[in-house]
Structure formats: structure tokens, C-alpha cells
Measured scan of single mutants.
Amino acid sequence: TRVETATETAWISLVTALHLVLGLSAVLGLLLLRKQFPAHYRRLRHALW
């Protein structure tokens, strides 16, 4: 049972790390898009919101 708990903890930390990386890359991508293609960014924002 101890090994299972350790594996679960590892999976949870892995998933958390993946979510963090995905969130950060999404934010960075949006910032880059905003900087380089303001028109595209505006259109995207209108489409999303």
C-alpha cells in the first residue's frame, strides 16, 4: 500500500506540473501573439469573449 501511495503522489505532482507548464505556455503564447500580431490578438479576443 505504501508503494501505491508514493505512485499516487508522483502522479499528482506530475499532473500539477503539467498543468502549470501548460498554463504558463498559454500565457506566454498569448503575450507573444499580442506583441507580434495585435490585429490577430484582438480578433481572437472577440471570438473568445
Score class of each variant (00 low, 15 high):
Thr1Cys: 04
Thr1Pro: 02
Thr1Gly: 02
Thr1Leu: 09
Thr1Tyr: 09
Thr1His: 03
Thr1Ser: 04
Arg2Asn: 07
Arg2Ser: 09
Arg2Ala: 07
Arg2Tyr: 12
Arg2Val: 11
Val3Glu: 03
Glu4Trp: 00
Glu4Arg: 02
Glu4Ala: 01
Thr5Lys: 02
Thr5Met: 10
Thr5Leu: 12
Thr5Asn: 02
Thr5Pro: 01
Ala6Tyr: 08
Ala6Met: 10
Ala6Pro: 02
Ala6Lys: 13
Ala6Cys: 05
Thr7Ala: 07
Thr7Leu: 08
Thr7Tyr: 14
Thr7Asn: 10
Thr7His: 05
Thr7Glu: 04
Glu8Val: 05
Glu8Lys: 09
Glu8Asp: 08
Glu8Ala: 03
Thr9Arg: 03
Thr9Cys: 05
Thr9Tyr: 04
Thr9Leu: 06
Thr9Gln: 01
Thr9Phe: 12
Ala10Lys: 09
Ala10Met: 14
Ala10Val: 09
Ala10Asp: 12
Ala10Phe: 10
Trp11Pro: 06
Trp11Met: 05
Trp11Arg: 11
Ile12Asp: 00
Ile12Pro: 10
Ile12Asn: 04
Ile12Gln: 03
Ile12Arg: 11
Ser13Trp: 14
Ser13Gly: 09
Ser13Phe: 15
Ser13Asn: 05
Leu14Gly: 08
Leu14Pro: 05
Leu14Thr: 04
Val15Gly: 06
Val15Thr: 13
Val15Phe: 03
Val15Cys: 04
Val15Ser: 06
Val15Arg: 07
Val15Trp: 08
Val15Tyr: 06
Val15Ile: 12
Thr16Leu: 11
Thr16Lys: 04
Thr16Tyr: 11
Thr16Trp: 07
Thr16Ala: 10
Ala17Lys: 02
Ala17Asn: 03
Ala17Met: 04
Ala17Trp: 04
Ala17Arg: 01
Ala17Ser: 04
Ala17His: 00
Ala17Phe: 06
Ala17Glu: 00
Ala17Leu: 10
Leu18Gln: 00
Leu18Asp: 01
Leu18Ala: 11
Leu18Arg: 03
His19Lys: 04
His19Thr: 08
His19Ser: 15
His19Met: 13
His19Cys: 15
His19Tyr: 05
His19Trp: 14
Leu20Val: 15
Leu20Glu: 00
Leu20Tyr: 04
Leu20Cys: 07
Leu20Ser: 03
Leu20Phe: 10
Leu20Asn: 01
Leu20Lys: 01
Val21Lys: 01
Val21Arg: 00
Val21Ser: 07
Val21Cys: 06
Val21Phe: 11
Leu22Glu: 00
Leu22Met: 07
Leu22Tyr: 01
Leu22Ala: 13
Leu22Gly: 10
Leu22Phe: 08
Gly23Val: 13
Leu24Arg: 00
Leu24Asn: 01
Leu24Met: 09
Leu24Asp: 09
Ser25Tyr: 01
Ser25Ile: 10
Ser25His: 00
Ser25Met: 12
Ser25Thr: 11
Ser25Gln: 00
Ser25Lys: 01
Val27His: 00
Val27Met: 09
Val27Trp: 11
Val27Arg: 00
Leu28Ser: 13
Leu28Pro: 04
Leu28Cys: 14
Leu28Lys: 01
Leu28Phe: 13
Leu28Gly: 15
Leu28Val: 14
Leu28Thr: 13
Gly29Arg: 00
Gly29Cys: 09
Gly29Glu: 01
Gly29Lys: 02
Gly29Leu: 07
Leu30Val: 12
Leu30Lys: 02
Leu30Phe: 11
Leu31Pro: 01
Leu31Tyr: 15
Leu31Cys: 13
Leu31Phe: 14
Leu32Cys: 14
Leu32Thr: 12
Leu32Asp: 02
Leu32Glu: 08
Leu32Lys: 07
Leu33Tyr: 14
Arg34Leu: 15
Arg34Lys: 12
Arg34Met: 11
Gln36Thr: 05
Gln36Leu: 14
Gln36Ala: 13
Gln36Phe: 15
Gln36Trp: 14
Gln36Val: 13
Gln36Met: 12
Phe37Val: 15
Phe37Gly: 13
Phe37Met: 12
Pro38Cys: 15
Pro38Ile: 15
Pro38Tyr: 15
Pro38Thr: 15
Ala39Gln: 09
Ala39Tyr: 10
Ala39Glu: 14
Ala39Cys: 15
Ala39Thr: 09
His40Trp: 15
His40Asn: 07
His40Pro: 05
Tyr41Arg: 06
Tyr41Thr: 07
Tyr41His: 03
Arg42Phe: 08
Arg42Lys: 07
Arg42Gly: 07
Arg42Thr: 07
Arg42Val: 08
Arg43Lys: 05
Arg43Ala: 05
Arg43Phe: 06
Arg43Thr: 03
Arg43Ser: 10
Arg43Gly: 07
Leu44Thr: 02
Leu44Ala: 03
Leu44Arg: 03
Leu44Lys: 02
Leu44Pro: 04
Leu44Gly: 02
Arg45Ala: 05
Arg45Asp: 03
Arg45Asn: 05
His46Ala: 12
His46Leu: 11
His46Phe: 09
His46Glu: 13
His46Arg: 07
His46Gly: 13
Ala47Trp: 09
Leu48Lys: 04
Leu48Ile: 08
Leu48Asp: 00
Leu48His: 07
Leu48Gln: 06
Leu48Phe: 08
Leu48Asn: 01
Leu48Pro: 04
Leu48Gly: 03
Leu48Tyr: 04
Leu48Trp: 10
Trp49Asp: 10
Trp49His: 13
Trp49Thr: 13
Trp49Met: 13
Trp49Pro: 10
Trp49Glu: 06
